[in-house]
């Protein structure tokens, strides 16, 4: 601690924060292991397991075939019998290959067994557009997962949260999905060297304000902060809430914010129609209707698969400009 103070803030990119979180979990929990495609020899296509095979060996860093049903099944079966697996699903889009293992087995086993089974399994997966990877390697499916009773869903927007959420997820005795963002991998912030948890079910107010609430998820938190800066120049004092925990959702923090600002917008990278933003809007009108001075706006991707062309993808992904435009529309400015 004192060393860190002397040397100033310890900055770490998102990618290294993931590595550090996983490493510390493996050090702490003897029955934890990582399994997934290209996690060992390759150290993940995103680079975040680099060095872990050398450090922990192939008993605990397990390269798997390209077999998502098998990989999730491995996680479910191992978690139910005394292990604490960390399962890597390289791209979130690949959950399509194992939706039964996720939705019908992992999510339901504890309930169907009348509480008999405990499944301490963590799934790390990569979401998001922005790298011209087209329709099957760019999606944000957190709303799919949040709709499944039995799993928890986290979305770290920054390196600090990525590490702390991985640790919290791995220590939780439930299936937890940590939905990370591939465009954030190089993004740095201060990350303590010691183990710490970002608690599940807690949103973070990342910018305080009194005039307007922006509820943002994943990478959109940074777009929301940029939008807030622009809006500040127009005299709008925005509060930005990083939703962070999709399931369980922290409605308390959301309601507290709306009671202060009376106007809000939700933003996520996922398709707007049927997105998790709709759930947030519904909960706010249920719990804080009397505090609302305007309809709650929503910003999300258009109802289309993610396009490949850089020209189209740029138009597709929500950004600060669109947030600003929607806020201005609500305020009539």
């Amino acid at each position: 601690m004192s060393e860190a103070l002397k040397e100033g803030p310890r900055m770490l990119p998102y990618v290294s924060a993931i590595t550090e979180g996983v490493r510390q979990v493996l050090q702490e929990q003897d029955n934890a292991f990582v399994a997934g495609e290209d996690v060992g020899q390759a150290g993940s296509v995103f680079g975040y397991y680099q060095g872990l095979l050398a450090e922990f060996g192939d008993r605990r860093i397990v390269d798997t075939p390209i077999s998502e049903k098998g990989i999730i099944g491995l996680g479910v079966g191992a978690a139910a019998t005394g292990c604490r697996p960390i399962i890597d699903v390289m791209f979130m889009d690949f959950l399509g290959e194992c939706m039964d293992e996720v939705a019908n087995q992992m999510a339901k086993m504890r309930f169907m067994f009348g509480g008999g089974a405990t499944l301490p399994v963590t799934v790390l997966t990569m979401a998001g557009a922005g790298m011209n990877l087209a329709a099957q390697h760019s999606q944000s499916w957190e709303a799919f997962l949040a709709h499944l009773p039995g799993v928890k869903v986290l979305m770290p927007s920054n390196a600090y949260d990525a590490k702390g959420m991985i640790i919290a997820a791995a220590r939780d005795d439930n299936p937890v999905f940590v939905v990370m963002n591939k465009m954030s991998l190089a993004m740095q912030c201060e990350v303590p060297a010691e183990m710490y948890e970002v608690p599940l079910g807690k949103a973070a107010v990342v910018r305080e304000g009194t005039g307007f609430s922006i509820f943002a998820m994943g990478r959109m938190v940074h777009e929301a902060l940029a939008a807030a800066k622009t809006l500040e120049g127009l005299g709008v004092d925005c509060e930005v809430v990083d939703v962070r925990s999709i399931q369980p959702f922290d409605s308390e923090t959301a309601v507290a914010s709306i009671k202060k600002t009376h106007r809000a917008l939700v933003v996520h990278e996922a398709v707007r129609f049927g997105g998790f933003g709709g759930e947030i809007v519904a909960q706010l009108q249920e719990e804080a209707f009397d505090y609302l001075d305007a309809p709650i706006a929503r910003v999300g991707a258009p109802f289309s698969p993610v396009p490949y062309s850089p020209a189209l993808e740029k138009l597709y992904i929500p950004n600060a400009e669109r947030i600003v435009a929607e806020v201005k529309k609500v305020l009539g400015i």
Binding site: F33, R59, G73, L74, T81, G82, D100, E101, N104, A117
Partner: peptide
């Protein structure tokens, strides 16, 4: 769980990946 029964399964083909995972766990442990 005490009898080692990781569930009947309503999904045809639901069991094999789970049993494989349990077997992985047995070897791991």
């Amino acid at each position: 769980m005490a009898l080692g029964i990781l569930g009947a399964n309503g999904i045809v083909g639901g069991g094999p990946p789970i049993a494989m995972g349990a077997a992985f766990s047995n070897k791991f442990r």
